[in-house]
Design a protein around this nucleic acid. Sequence first.
DNA 1: GTCTATACACAGATAGAC
DNA 2: GTCTATCTGTGTATAGAC
Lengths: 197, 197
Amino acid sequence: MVKNTRNSRPFILDRVTPLFARLGYNGVSMRDLATAVGVTPAALYYHFKNKDELYAEVVNRVFKKKITDATAIMTEDEEPVKRLETFIVWFVRALNKDKDFQKLLQWVMLDNDPKRIQALTTNTFQELFCAIQNLGESFKKQYDPHLLATSIIGLVLYHFESLAVRKKMPGRRAQHDKAETIARHITALLENGLLAH
Amino acid sequence: MVKNTRNSRPFILDRVTPLFARLGYNGVSMRDLATAVGVTPAALYYHFKNKDELYAEVVNRVFKKKITDATAIMTEDEEPVKRLETFIVWFVRALNKDKDFQKLLQWVMLDNDPKRIQALTTNTFQELFCAIQNLGESFKKQYDPHLLATSIIGLVLYHFESLAVRKKMPGRRAQHDKAETIARHITALLENGLLAH
DNA sequence: GTCTATACACAGATAGAC
DNA sequence: GTCTATCTGTGTATAGAC
């Protein structure tokens, strides 16, 4: 029987996600998290076995829906160029809108636990990565699919990963933050390259 | 007067760098670091004011020389295409060879301290970033220099940031780890794009 | 210059009252 | 379902012996 629906699992995850996203697993304590939820640490342990499980649920919840959406886009029955463009626009928008998603993606890449990496890869990323690889193959034989998929993802991601540093750079303008501007730049560069005439 | 030269500052930094690189600032304790050096925590506090200073020195030392080398390459008196290619080869090789450099670069991007970000940006990254921006401008007017510089860096970096996850992906081959292969792929993609005929 | 010993705050986690 | 109280380990950091 639920005594206080405000503090059930989804509510806790909502409150806790931004903290993990900003400071990482080792950057926050159960006390910090409890404070953010508005309860005591003991209450957290009623709902989640330990800190690890809480973190895993946060990451899972944030990624699951996004990746499903993305995979749907990638397997649509469109011509390759169109599919690539749709994906880039979706990816840029998702990263721009959901900062927690973007940050957690960054933290997850630095994780050292082989089990967590394995789980995340096979359960979450694999399907999308393969879809991007397949898309890449439909362009030209000259590019290795694995390397091409990596390049595409990195090209998009880094515009957000580097934000804190780039903000301090000379030549920086407000328009560089707009999702549409970034998406258009990436698409053009990826399709035409630097030396197109 | 130096009693034990084995444990002076450079020696400590050497021993401590891989730990910070692998686990991040919050992932290691002064006890861990002292053990890696082969001394007690108290000895560490004789050489460094606190953990913050130790970390700052590690990051600074690892980045300083690399960035100087890179900036030299970027300001050489060569034609743009050649300069870009040289830079990419250098960058890929540096990331491939020095895993600590690569990992610290990743950790630094997740730092939340405005002071540390500011210091690192102006003292370390700015010069190189501007050089890449300038190089980008010599290609075509159609690409925004700031966005283009970001794209080039991200294109290279992500091949290394994503390594742990990509290792578990189907379609992965040993050649994808070779610096030359990665550099050639990135250069080709960047210059010609996906739709070149 | 490095040690032993230790202070003291804070970490994750649990027991048991309500 | 959430609390108070608390255990135990580990965190950063220092004092003072050698």
